[in-house]
Amino acid sequence: MLISPLGESGEVKLTPFPPKFVAPARGWSALGGDPCLPAGTAPLAEIPPCQGGQINMNDRELLKKLNNLKDIKPDQAWKKNYRGILYSQISASRPVLAPQSNIRIVWQTIMPRQILISLAKPVWLASAASVLILVVGLGGVYASKNSKPGDSLYIAKIISEKAQFAMAFDEQDKAKLGVEFATNRAKEMVQILKDTDQTLETNNDKLEALSQNFKREIGQVKKRLTIIKAAKEQAKNDESQVFGANLGKSDQRMEIAEPAESTTEKPVAGGDIASTTKLISENQTITNATSTPETRASADQMLEQAEKLFDEKNLDETINKLEEVNKALSESGQVKGESEIASSTD
């Protein structure tokens, strides 16, 4: 029992334990539960309060009393009065601003200014701009694929072709690209011939320019093919020389140690080295020897045929022929790649 004095009346008011009281959830949670009760026990009114020695002060009662104090409120008259005063005070401080709509406030909450500021940073702007340029550029190149001379995007096509050519380091690839470009020129000529809107003179001019271009491309491809051929032969010679030198060296060593198996089969003397190395190198480059020269020969021949067809103004056939050349070249390229892998693993 808590005995409380009642001020001026001098009476003693007994405050019995309230039967209906349930401790406020927030109050208890702050304490990690009622310390008088075992963990997990609901703070029900039926459970007797724990005794703190002789003193009948329990936590629930205390919390209840504390909770009761929230009923203390300011004088209503003062509250109302000051409300008016406050309103006039804040009105005097600044001109009235139009109240904002809730939607706008919610938007500002979701999208704080900081995000916009961080988006406006030079790094983001620069990257956004570069991405935009890239997308627009790629789109332009793609769109220019079927353009013909006189189109606004034709220049993009030519530039992309030049770029492709610059990016190709292999002679084989360059030759292939040359054939492709020649095919493009032929296709453009077909398109121009189909296009009847233009005057005959302008068409003729364009056709003239295109055929010159075609000739140049074909000439370049031919040059490249001969270069490739020469390089191949040179490489073959180099290979055999290197191989021979190695063989000679190892033979010298082997002579000191014990007779090697290869030497027993074929006696190695100064002049014979060349013949043995030739044999071995022939075995080594057997794939190259069987596939590439043939295709190259056929590619050469087909190129000649295509040129002839072009001179005869048979453009469709020329295009077909050139596509065949392209195919042959890419096949030979594959074979070459495979043979390279095979020789490197040996």
Partner: peptide
């Protein structure tokens, strides 16, 4: 009344 008593103590 009860509240007042509690209040006074507190």
């Amino acid at each position: 009344l009860e509240l007042k008593a509690d209040l006074l103590v507190l």
